[in-house]
Amino acid sequence: MALADIWGRSGSPENFISCPACGRRALKQVWREHINVCPSCGKYQPLKGKARLNLVLDRGSQKELFPEMAVHDPLGFPGYREKAEAQQEKTGLNEAVLSAYGTISNFPAVVAVLDSRFFMGSMSSTVGEKITRTIEYAGKEKLPLIIFSASGGARMQEGIFSLMQMAKTSAAIQAFSEAGGLFISYLTHPTTGGVTASFATLGDITLAEPGALIGFAGPRVIEQTIHAKLPKNFQRSEYLEERGFVDMIVERKDMKSVLAQLLSLHS
């Protein structure tokens, strides 16, 4: 069973889950206590978008934004609708991004989370539009904005419409920023392609989860281009932090307190 499925399938008879990285098993309950970080090897496993929102936002403060926005098929791409329906069925999501208003330790904020289970968190026209509406909502309400990225890049099935979301979201962040809005970009595994080359790298503050792959081109493409092996930690959070593209790597257990600290410093 995939780790990403562990929360929310309470009826499963399997009480133990093995880590995809080290293979060691731990009780579901222990995984949950460690917020999907392997209790044995410390490797970060994905969090569902909803779980992330629940962890970050104060209990009872959450109001989901634009929940009705779902996959749309601008090119009439063969097989895309069916595939999207299967993903919706599997994840219970309409699209790869969730947006919500809420408070973080009593500081109000707007939060968007990309969910990598849905088409690898890829940028579709709905994802781009929903992110843009979320940015505009935060701008209008004069609230800080936090976006958790996790994306394999462009949604191939939407071709040029996927690409154009990069310009749209970047322009929206620009306007938000000029109006004085605070944008915290929170990079999780993996943040690549068109998401890296748009809103995800335009934060006032850039945070990252340990060990996350963050880059524009994928490592395989780079190795094919330069005909050489890349260093083991290449494009990982730690590598980017070392080079100053990430302000801070934050452990999952500290996620909420660091966000609260930053919101407080900007309040």
């Binding site: 890296t196 080359a197 790298t201 081109a217 780079i222 290449f234 080079r243």
Partner: peptide
């Protein structure tokens, strides 16, 4: 954009994003 090692190390994603944001204003 060039998918090379140094290009990544120098922030290929950031440079592209910044360029679009910049042109938008």
């Amino acid at each position: 954009a060039y998918p090379g090692k140094e290009a990544e190390e120098h922030g290929q994603g950031e440079a592209i994003a910044r360029s679009m944001a910049f042109m938008s204003k």
